[in-house]
Nucleic acid binder design. Structure first.
Lengths: 230, 230
DNA sequence: TCTTGTTAGATTGTCGACAATCTGCTTGTC
DNA sequence: GACAAGCAGATTGTCGACAATCTAACAAGA
């Protein structure tokens, strides 16, 4: 009775591969914020013409991690403390919604997947792979969105994820510290398996708090005492 | 003391104009859901080469109103009852957040702008211009997002707006009724000017409810009793 | 009759070259 | 020396043509 459960064929267009490459370069900090993307140089490096490269860049502009100025160029977005703060407070509200919606839909598959992703984080942590640690942590966190059964909510989360990953990667790059050895997701996973939804929501908020606070402090430090008035 | 308040120069690239044209065609229902966009035909009609057209389409795919299948084509998104329901329940939560954030930032400029946009809706209603009525109503509603001082929240709203406008336009198209003469936004505007934030939030939710309920009923009617199981 | 292989037409994906625009330097003038 | 005009050089925007892929119609075989 096992239905053959094929996954979609891999995207075979150059455009899709370029998107993946560029996104990765940006999210890992290989391409720094504010940096200009020279079309000719990149197309030559990738052995690709400018047409698919430009289309890929247009996608990433819409995704919000590149910004384009006509006849001037396309740049990696700058990251301000306000951007991080905005993403943070928005994320808090979304999290509560996602947990609320996903809560009654939790089943064995959910718990299994939760463990699987949790394991992936722990493995990346053991391997001292900071990039992958951020990536897997976000995937762990994203499970409630995938389970919330709301396409708009999920899509919004995925958009936000790009930027969050970029922010955290920047932070890690700057600190250049070894990754924390202890498992900060233990409580989160346990609460999601439990019976108290409010407690899970509360923890999710506070748990996110911690990481973000560090991030914010770092970003504020970068900005030279700007005039923050309207 | 009046600062020269210039608006940005108009986008001079064909790409930007194509994006605007296509978006308009989709949001007004000129291009029906599911319809395929033939690149050659459109590029000839617009007297433009396929390169900027394709870049424009890539943007709209990311914006969520087009969908692309490699080597098969790019299509206007289909609208299901679930999509509308998802957008609806997501919008409710966002609205509460937006009102909460915008509330303490309301000032004279806010009230003036509120009146201005309200007037625009009434004018479109008097002119029996349904398309413009939808557009202006969404702009009126979007003010709280612009005032909430959160870039992520605003951006998310703008993305959602595209689809909402499309949904409502479809609905209007299908009903083909004259627009309602009475002013459904009167209470909304009055509450936003008042002192009771909770009341404003409650009304926004219920006000939105009305329009959406009709929309949902319509969309469900379209779908041939689909199996709604997982 | 149903399935499978082939082929022609149409459409999308990609390429290399040209046009439009910006940037920085040079030049000339005061 | 300061400043504006004008001139390369580089970069982005756009174009037309070619290559890769899909669709459907049709033929051949079980």
């Amino acid at each position: 009775m096992a239905k053959a459960d094929f996954s979609p064929i891999a995207d075979t267009t150059r455009r899709a591969e370029i998107v993946a490459l560029l996104r990765r370069a940006i999210l890992t900090g290989q391409l720094a914020p504010g940096q200009k993307l020279n079309e000719l140089r990149i197309s030559e490096q990738m052995r690709v013409s400018r047409a698919p490269l430009r289309e890929a860049m247009r996608e990433l502009v819409q995704e919000g991690i590149l910004t384009s100025i006509p006849y001037a160029g396309t740049f990696v977005i700058e990251v301000t403390a306000k951007d991080i703060d905005d993403a943070y407070s928005f994320n808090k509200v979304m999290d509560e919604l996602a947990i609320e919606r996903a809560w009654p839909l939790r089943d064995q598959r959910f718990f299994d997947e939760l463990d699987r992703r949790h394991e992936a984080v722990k493995q990346a942590t053991r391997a001292l792979d900071t990039t992958r640690q951020i990536e897997t942590a976000l995937q762990l966190h994203g499970l409630i969105y995938e389970w919330a059964d709301n396409s708009v909510l999920l899509e919004t989360w995925q958009r936000l994820t790009s930027r969050l990953q970029m922010y955290f990667a920047l932070h890690q790059h700057a600190r250049n510290e070894p990754v924390p050895a202890e498992d900060v997701h233990e409580t989160y996973v346990r609460l999601l398996k439990g019976k108290d939804m409010r407690a899970a929501q509360r923890h999710a908020r506070e748990h996110i708090d911690l990481d973000f606070e560090e991030l914010l402090a770092y970003a504020r430090g970068l900005e030279q005492r700007p005039s923050r008035g309207a």
